[in-house]
Amino acid sequence: MSIVIGTSYVWNIVTATVMGLQAAGFAGCASRQKARLDLPHSAEVGSRAAEKLSDEQNEEFTRFQKVNQSHIDYLPLAQSSVLLAGLFYPKLSAYAGAAYILGRFVYSVGYIKCGPEGRKYGVFFICPSIVTLLGASLYGSFKALSLV
C-alpha cells in the first residue's frame, strides 16, 4: 500500500507545522517573560518565585503562562484534525486550519494585552475551525466506511 500525497494535502502539512511552530513560539515568549521578570526557569503561577512579583507583574506572568498552556492543550487536537480531515477534504481543512492559526494569534495577543476579556475575539475563529475539522474528519471517515 502506498500513500500518495497530492499538492492540496501539502497545505495541510504546512498548516499543522505552523500550528506547532506557533505553540513553540508562545512557549518561548513565556520563557522570555520569566527571564525579564528575573524568575527561575521552574517558576510557575502561584509558586514562591512568582509571589515575589508585584501584582502587575504577576498578572502579566499569569497571562503568558495561560496562553502558553492553552496552546499546548489544544495543539494535538488541532494538528491531528487538520491532518485527518485533510485526507478527505484537503482544501477545506487547510482553510479551517489557517482560521485556527489566525484565531490562536488573536486569542493570544488579546489575552496578553487585555486579560480574559481580550481572548473572546480569537475564540470566534478557533471554535468554528475546530468544529469544522472534527466534523470533516468524522464525516469523511463515515463516508469511507459507507455508513453515510
Rank of each mutant, 00 (worst) to 15 (best):
123 V>R: 11
142 F>K: 05
112 I>A: 14
124 F>T: 12
34 K>W: 05
24 A>I: 00
98 A>Q: 05
143 K>A: 06
108 S>M: 12
132 T>Q: 15
61 F>K: 02
15 T>E: 00
88 F>I: 01
49 A>Y: 04
126 I>P: 15
139 Y>T: 10
87 L>P: 04
48 R>V: 13
137 S>T: 14
37 L>D: 05
108 S>W: 08
9 Y>N: 01
97 G>N: 09
81 S>W: 01
43 A>W: 09
97 G>H: 11
39 L>P: 10
114 C>D: 15
40 P>Q: 08
58 N>A: 13
38 D>E: 09
139 Y>F: 09
16 A>N: 01
25 G>C: 03
83 L>A: 06
69 Q>F: 10
29 C>S: 13
73 D>W: 02
130 I>A: 14
143 K>D: 13
56 E>R: 01
134 L>A: 13
110 G>Y: 07
130 I>W: 14
104 R>E: 06
134 L>N: 13
90 P>L: 00
126 I>L: 15
6 G>W: 04
92 L>P: 12
144 A>P: 11
137 S>D: 11
69 Q>Y: 07
25 G>S: 06
107 Y>E: 05
60 E>R: 08
82 V>P: 07
47 S>F: 02
144 A>V: 06
6 G>E: 00
56 E>K: 00
121 Y>W: 15
145 L>S: 09
74 Y>C: 11
113 K>Q: 13
25 G>V: 05
115 G>H: 11
105 F>S: 12
29 C>F: 15
40 P>I: 07
84 L>R: 01
140 G>T: 08
63 R>P: 08
42 S>I: 04
96 A>G: 11
124 F>S: 14
10 V>L: 03
140 G>F: 07
68 N>R: 12
132 T>I: 15
116 P>I: 14
61 F>P: 00
135 G>T: 15
145 L>N: 09
2 S>E: 14
103 G>R: 02
67 V>E: 05
39 L>R: 07
141 S>I: 02
103 G>Q: 05
66 K>S: 10
124 F>D: 13
141 S>C: 04
111 Y>Q: 07
15 T>K: 00
38 D>M: 03
143 K>H: 13
91 K>W: 14
62 T>I: 01
92 L>R: 07
113 K>S: 13
66 K>E: 12
46 G>W: 04
32 R>L: 12
56 E>Y: 01
96 A>W: 10
25 G>R: 05
53 L>N: 02
63 R>K: 11
19 M>C: 09
113 K>I: 11
60 E>H: 10
23 A>Q: 06
103 G>I: 01
55 D>W: 03
45 V>E: 03
132 T>Y: 15
